[in-house]
């Protein structure tokens, strides 16, 4: 009997901040014969421990953003459960519970320009959450807090009364990060936080997030399509395809020894800044039409340590054999 991911998940739950269990998010359009159901997220499970960063990778349209949005209750999940700090947060909640969720989970968005209100000053943007949640008593205290946050993200005190248009892209993303950090959330969902930024700015923001992660012990769900960034940044990686997690494990394991054909194709497609290598390389391609068509029970099954691959019982045996064959080669 092979271990599947669900039983692995249940065995450890001491300091789990977020636990997603078989989350499903379907969208439908049209009625009767014309009804179309899009299974954006189709039964995914994962958990994030305190202080850990979980990287979710996949191509556009695979459902990674939807996952983030379902967790933060922007959509009503079709099925499955989400636990946050041991509390069930999917489904109907009382207003107190909602407050705990909205305070405890914060989100960093992709586009810093459209996620900041152009008519609010930096102080209003960053402090809004504090005021709404009544976490500060006086205006001076708020100013104090905001200035503290600005310094943490590498902006200066006099930026406090400026408007978003006065900042560059990287600085705007810093404001977005300060807004998230001020309410001291236990989980941050970062949805492609650097893909809209310029090359020279991306490294600045990545380093800032990395620093903050170490200093403040942040717990992050990091959603991105850039594999090298995810590898650099995450403690645990889930590769998503077609609404499912097809492979998950430690980044080192997955990148050194990818087993699912989609993960292989994805890794083979990463351009590497080395002309000699690029000239001779071949890309693997993945035929998506075969995904999930083989007869049998599909599940995330254990390969080794905490490396799981999605497939049927039969495919699992193949993956295992492949792993055994390559294990020695890698070490």
């Amino acid at each position: 009997m092979t271990t599947n991911y669900d039983s692995f998940q249940n065995s450890t739950d001491d300091d789990v901040v977020l636990k997603v269990d078989c989350l499903k998010q379907h969208f439908s359009s049209g009625y009767g014969k014309k009804k179309v159901v899009v299974k954006a997220v189709d039964g995914i499970s994962f958990q994030i421990k305190k202080g850990e960063t979980y990287g979710l990778v996949g191509e556009s349209g695979c459902g990674k953003t939807t996952t983030g949005r379902s967790i933060i209750r922007l959509y009503k999940p079709t099925g499955g459960n989400v636990w946050f700090n041991g509390e069930l947060i999917s489904g109907n909640l009382t207003s107190e519970q909602k407050l705990r969720v909205t305070q405890g989970i914060q989100m960093i968005f992709q586009d810093p320009i459209s996620s900041l209100n152009p008519r609010m000053t930096v102080k209003e943007i960053i402090g809004e959450g504090m005021i709404i949640n009544k976490l500060v008593k006086s205006d001076e205290e708020l100013t104090q807090k905001v200035i503290e946050m600005l310094r943490i993200v590498g902006l200066s005190d006099d930026h406090i009364s400026r408007y978003p248009h006065e900042f560059s892209g990287g600085q705007r993303q810093r404001i977005g990060i300060a807004r998230v950090l001020i309410s001291n959330p236990s989980l941050i969902i970062a949805d492609e936080p650097i893909s809209a930024l310029d090359v020279s700015i991306q490294a600045q923001v990545l380093n800032l997030l990395n620093d903050l992660k170490k200093k403040m012990g942040l717990t992050l769900l990091f959603i991105a399509h850039d594999l090298s960034v995810v590898k650099y940044f995450s403690d645990y990686v889930g590769v998503m395809y077609n609404g499912k997690i097809v492979e998950c494990g430690k980044p080192g394991t997955i990148f050194a020894n990818p087993l699912h054909p989609y993960t292989k194709a994805l890794i083979s497609a990463i351009p590497i800044p080395d002309p000699a290598f690029e000239r001779g390389r071949t890309y693997l391609s993945y035929d998506g039409s075969r995904f999930g068509c083989a007869p049998g029970n599909y599940d995330l099954r254990l390969i080794s340590d905490d490396h799981f691959v999605y497939g049927t019982e039969e495919e699992h045996q193949e993956f295992l054999a492949e792993y055994e064959a390559r294990k020695d080669l890698i070490k």
């Binding site: 020279s200 960034v229 590898k231």
Partner: peptide, 10 residues
């Protein structure tokens, strides 16, 4: 430019 982005070997 060449050293500011993470790559697979980092």
């Amino acid at each position: 430019l060449m050293s500011s982005m993470p790559d697979m070997d980092i």
